[in-house]
Design a protein around this nucleic acid. Structure first.
Lengths: 250, 250
DNA sequence: ACCTGAACACCGTTCAAGT
DNA sequence: ACCTGAACACCGTTCAAGT
């Protein structure tokens, strides 16, 4: 095909000095891609393409893909922090309930973050800021010493563990799961366990989103009850290791 | 190079009729590879190589890589089930403590499973068998209706959520994490949060494995306390939705 | 200082062809 | 029935070279 007339006017002007890629820009584009297409769909080439650059251009701003994902993960923690819940007004129970529901919502909105939490360290500034707020919440409530961190870890791990299988289900099903789909699956697969199957017919909520919320609420209450017991039980104690009931890790 | 003398005797005998690959064999080899090199290191080519076969041979026995991973994940659930803890002797508290520690240990021994739980459904026979045992544990203890499943989900999600970040830490560090490494990292990164840093110096256990176990124990006690509260509180209730304290998902 | 292209060593999966 | 090899459309990353 014929070349078009080249001239100063047809040729794209040289990019103004600082109009190249920014690390921020790259991270934002990565999060867009992660939100819309999911973690496995994020490739350096595709991301470069979206930014109108070669894939390898990204490597000047970022050491490798994992580093980019660490940056995205820290943005996620920033969203959790922004969601609030830890501003210090209200009872511990209210504060933690708000925080837990917020963390849950942000995780469901950015499911890739749940995967990354299991693969990369959360050592960015936003993660630390959130950690500090969580720490203050528990010290203000009266927790002391190691218990401050153990209590925070208990809430976080519960929320994370609650969401992780939900993400797997939605991925397997290719979208939000309806209760009837679960029932249909169980009727086909759990033929050896009639009681379980019957329960799914009779006792599970119609709306599986509501069911998941019920499970979350149930578990959260258990955790909060336990935390309050621990707080009231021995107000000045440094740790609770003396009242352990565990048989120990195997 | 010269061909060696070909004959019936030099030529390898035709494989006996059923000596080819087995699905079981493939899954076992996959788990070996996952245990020794981790999830990202598992490729169909490498797995085929280990079995003395072409990568593409595997596709006769297994539809795709995800299906293979589903099979491996079900084996994991089998290991959890074999670990016991749900045999029905002892109090609910004892039973659940043993179960939780066992689940934790099996997850730590096969960290890839924690990742897969977040990406694939657990709909294999061993997962169902374990689910049934868990169901019986809670019905025997007096839970009814939906609460049976909510209680089981609470224990499982706590354990899973507790282990997921530990896996990330070990991966980032390339091996088991020593407390001094965490302290060193925090001194460098959490400069804005002196109280947090000080706590890590004074209050964290020397042995970070012990620290993780403490955190697990603390949280598990919270969960168990909460479950017992719920059990004693309203022995005949079908669900606990009436006593929710949640502000609701956003 | 920032970006490009070619190149390397990989991936998962399909499919015609072999035995 | 079971396995192979070539092929396709991808990967992350390095590095010399450009501007």
């Amino acid at each position: 095909m014929a070349k078009s007339f080249d001239s100063v006017w047809t040729r794209a002007p040289r990019q103004p000095r600082t109009s190249g890629l920014t690390r921020d820009q790259i991270v934002r584009a990565a999060i867009d891609l992660l939100d819309s297409e999911g973690l496995p769909a994020l490739s350096m080439r595709k991301l470069g393409g979206r930014l109108g650059a070669g894939a390898t251009s990204l490597y000047w701003h970022v050491a490798n893909k994992d580093e980019l994902l660490e940056l995205a993960l820290d943005e996620f923690w920033g969203l959790v922090d922004d969601g609030g819940g830890l501003d210090g007004s209200g009872s511990l129970r209210e504060t933690l309930t708000t925080y837990a529901y917020n963390l849950r919502a942000v995780l469901l909105a950015h499911p890739w973050a749940a995967t990354l939490i299991g693969q990369l360290p959360s050592w960015g500034p936003r993660a630390f800021r959130l950690g500090e707020r969580l720490r203050r919440t528990f010290t203000d409530a009266g927790f002391q010493g190691l218990d401050v961190y153990l209590a925070g870890g208990t809430v976080n791990s519960f929320v994370l563990g609650q969401i992780v299988p939900v993400i797997a289900m939605e991925k397997a099903h290719g979208g939000p799961v309806r209760q009837q789909d679960v029932v249909g699956m169980l009727d086909g697969l759990a033929t050896d366990y009639p009681e379980m199957r019957a329960d799914y017919h009779t006792v599970m909520p119609e709306d599986s989103t509501a069911g998941q919320a019920l499970g979350f609420d149930f578990g959260l209450m258990c955790v909060l009850d336990g935390l309050e017991t621990r707080l009231r039980g021995r107000p000045g104690a440094d740790t609770v290791s003396g009242e352990t009931n565990a048989t120990g890790p195997s």
